[in-house]
Amino acid sequence: MPLDWASLVGFVGTACIIGAYAYLTLSDATNPYVLHGTNLTGAALLTVSLLVHTNWPSLVLEGFWAAIAITGLVKAARAHKARKEVMP
């Protein structure tokens, strides 16, 4: 089966998620916006691919992956806001 646009989008999403995991593993001090933003981007791109080439277990996994990434982004934003309030 030749690679179509949806598969290529999925590969980019996979690269994002693998890159984020490598960043988390190899970095001494991670930026939560980079980490969770890259994971969210990867999950979104894989979701687009999975909507074309449906694989329900993987689609559910990407939903959870995106929810965790969004939670991480919200947590980082709240922590940033709290630090700004303490140190004007």
Rank of each mutant, 00 (worst) to 15 (best):
G13S: 01
V74I: 14
T30C: 04
N31L: 11
A66S: 11
S7Y: 03
D4M: 06
T25D: 03
A20C: 09
S49H: 07
R83L: 11
V52P: 02
R78Q: 09
A20Q: 06
T38L: 06
A79T: 15
V60D: 05
A76Q: 14
A44E: 03
D4N: 11
A44W: 03
A82G: 10
W56V: 15
G63Y: 06
L40G: 00
S27C: 11
I17W: 02
A67D: 13
A76K: 11
L59W: 09
L40N: 02
S49I: 03
N55V: 13
G42L: 03
L40A: 05
L61I: 15
G37K: 05
P57C: 09
A43H: 00
L24G: 02
L24W: 07
V86Y: 01
I70L: 09
L73A: 08
W56R: 14
G37T: 13
V74S: 04
Y33M: 14
N39Q: 12
A44P: 00
E62V: 10
F64I: 15
P32I: 12
R83T: 12
G19V: 12
V60S: 05
L59A: 04
T71S: 07
P88S: 04
L26W: 11
P32A: 09
L8N: 07
I68T: 13
T54V: 13
M1Y: 10
A79W: 01
L51S: 10
L61M: 15
T14Q: 02
S7F: 00
I17F: 01
F11L: 15
N55A: 11
L8K: 09
F64M: 15
C16S: 10
A79D: 13
M1T: 14
P57A: 11
W56S: 08
V74W: 08
G72Q: 10
I17D: 00
V12G: 02
A76F: 02
L45C: 00
I68W: 07
A43E: 06
P57T: 08
A15M: 13
P2R: 10
V9F: 01
W65A: 01
S58Y: 09
A76S: 12
V60T: 14
A67L: 14
C16W: 01
I18Q: 08
T41C: 05
E62K: 11
L50P: 01
A67I: 11
A22T: 15
V86P: 03
K84P: 05
N31G: 04
R83D: 10
G19H: 06
L46A: 05
V74R: 14
S58E: 14
M87P: 05
W56L: 14
S7M: 12
L46R: 10
V86S: 08
P2H: 07
G72D: 06
T25S: 07
S27Q: 11
H53R: 10
D4Y: 03
A66N: 07
V52H: 08
N55F: 10
A66R: 03
A67C: 09
G37I: 12
G63N: 09
W65H: 06
S7H: 12
H36Y: 11
L3F: 04
V60I: 15
Y23G: 06
W5T: 15
A29M: 12
T47R: 04
K84T: 12
V34E: 00
I18V: 14
H36P: 05
M1A: 12
H80D: 12
